[in-house]
Write a protein that binds this DNA or RNA. Structure first.
Lengths: 351, 351
DNA sequence: AGCGCTATCGGTAGCGCTAACAGAAGATGT
DNA sequence: ACATCTTCTGTTAGCGCTACCGATAGCGCT
């Protein structure tokens, strides 16, 4: 049993029994060198039409699929964009992902997906493992990261685009909007509409930085419009991000702050849930209590009363982020690496 | 300018200026061989505690992140699960993805994501490019695939799990339910409830095979319950998968089949949209027209009237599929490679 | 005939890692 | 004292691909 590989041909010992077709196999079929096959795949123009056709036939015949790990290793480019989002379930991000992928896929990039579940520790581990694939670009949700994450991303030198928030000191590029300004604008709009006793309702979770920023905007706006007043805030951290929880929050927040005339939710999920629950229990909106949201889902437009909320560039933020990454991955340094995609206040019947 | 690499050390010509830290670098810092560093990462028990500690310090010090492409190439395992879904936007699939990822991530697997937009051609290209990463497993939505797809997947030898549908001839393993039986059960339930003039409304798109299967179940049930009757069907292929379209379909379908007493939608998206539109326009549900859906979203439970629909194992299908893949990726051959996750009819006020 | 250019192809040397084997050092049994 | 086993570490040879360089042939021009 000194030698367990019986076949002693030019081919040396094989590790795996189920090896797939390689460039060399195709080259032998076509009667050219492996290098030429590689060229047909990458730079077909540099190969004569005659040879190219022979090689292409051989590729089809052999059912050859290039090994991208090997290509990655040799070329130092992976054609992978690592994507970090807080949660898959939240439908908002899936729209952003769709936008991102719709621009990147035609350029041959694939999305390597990871979600953090609004947990900083998980984000750190996730990024470490994603970096292992040597992605050509990094798509990040949010702009607040742990020092470890910042260090890993900067030393890796990968182009990064941060989204869904705003900062003056981005890691690399930034395609977002200011959650704080958006909430400030919402509060101002409610103030203008005559509401006087607002109550913020949102998850102030450690990891949900965007919700935190919205609270910041709320607090600043309240301080500006009602100087000296004690701001009403209800922490919904213990509630899951569901419509049903929004219904329970309608009660919980009103119980905590019975004098409120409008509940300012940090997300449309909760706000729509509250609207549904209010209808169910015969609570008049906006008569008894007004409600505002954040995100402008499709449901928010169609539900009755229509939800007053903040419209965000869900899909376009993904597309623009993709375009930004593409430029950076080509080695360009965009003149304007910060893009504010803005937001819009949508005033409807609920407030 | 005969030689552009000035540094003539033991290190040979480097291709990329911004090379990252390698195993060798860590080995030199720790004063051991590269192999030992590799072992610390993969099989720490085979390294003495003393050496291990030195190496771990060196890893942290150097900020080393293993290159998984190289590992993949050398070990013939990628720790990647390729994931094919029709669409990111449809929230149903994101729940399945969450389930899938929650089981696979702890085992060190990453999801490489691709979506087909309900297009068979795109599915083919997508799978080809995903195969290039040599994934350890394949997660597929649906059981109907083009011959090219079947050939690619079978010859590649990758473990596959098909989901969200049913077939007697799966490619490999199957974790799903029968869309046809589910719709059959829904029609029977409606029949039992006294409805007599059903109208199926759904997208019969080329690529949306699940919708097609539901139609099949509908047609079979109608033939069984009302022998000889002409089944009412409204093709919604031209409508996008949105709540708003559901509202338009309410009108369009009733116009096409004015005698219908219940609209049987192929998805909760349309059905909920129809409910919202009916409320808006003062159409009594189920008085004037009854409505049923498919999918049992959270909204369907909370909207009024509650939506009569089919509950599907959204999250659990992802978890169970992940467990199935894990077994297969360990080389096991499950005794029962087909799992029917079932479904449930939820009767509520809308029908 | 010789020059310079382009177009087309092949050979070589890695990319960073792991599998397989080999070897050194110490522990154990007789 | 010796052989034998165990534990730990190092050496070697690739994995499949691409970057880089070099070779050749053909072309137009002087």
């Amino acid at each position: 049993m000194s030698s367990q590989d019986g076949a002693v041909t030019s081919v040396s010992r094989r590790r795996s029994a189920t090896r797939s077709v390689t460039l060399q196999d195709v080259a032998e079929i076509a009667g050219v060198s492996a290098q030429t096959v590689s060229r047909v795949l990458r730079v077909p123009d540099e190969v004569s039409p005659h040879t190219r056709e022979r090689v292409e036939t051989a590729i089809r015949e052999a059912g050859y699929v290039p090994n991208l790990s090997a290509r990655n290793l040799a070329s130092n480019r992976s054609k992978i964009v690592a994507t970090v989002i807080p949660s898959l379930s939240a439908s908002i991000f899936s729209e952003t992902l769709t936008g991102l992928s719709s621009v990147l896929a035609p350029e041959g990039y694939q999305l390597l997906l990871g979600y953090t579940d609004y947990d900083d520790k998980r984000e750190e581990e996730l990024i470490r493992s994603l970096l292992g694939r040597r992605p050509d670009g990094f798509f990040m949700t949010g702009t607040l990261h742990s020092p470890a994450v910042v260090r890993m991303l900067t030393t890796s030198g990968v182009p990064v685009v941060e989204t869904w928030d705003w900062t003056d000191t981005p890691l690399d590029t930034l395609v977002g909007f200011s959650n704080e300004e958006a909430m400030y604008a919402m509060v101002s709009s409610l103030h203008e509409a005559g509401y006087r006793r607002l109550c913020f309702v949102g998850r102030l979770h450690k990891g949900d930085h965007r919700s935190r920023r919205r609270l910041d905007g709320y607090l600043r706006a309240v301080a500006d419009h009602w100087p000296g007043a004690e701001p009403r805030v209800f922490d919904a951290s213990e509630f899951p991000l569901t419509l049903e929880a929004g219904g329970r929050l309608l009660d919980a927040a009103r119980q905590a702050h019975p004098d409120s005339d409008v509940l300012v939710f940090s997300t449309d999920v909760f706000a729509n849930g509250a609207l549904l629950a209010a209808a169910e229990r015969g609570i008049a909106v906006p008569g008894e209590i007004a409600i505002s949201g954040f995100g402008d889902f499709e449901l928010s437009r169609l539900i009755r009363p229509g939800l007053t909320t903040v419209a965000l560039p869900n899909t376009t933020i993904g597309q623009e982020a993709a375009r930004m990454l593409l430029r950076r991955m080509r080695g360009e340094r965009p003149a304007k690496p910060h893009v504010d995609m803005g937001f819009q206040i949508r005033r409807r019947a609920s407030a």
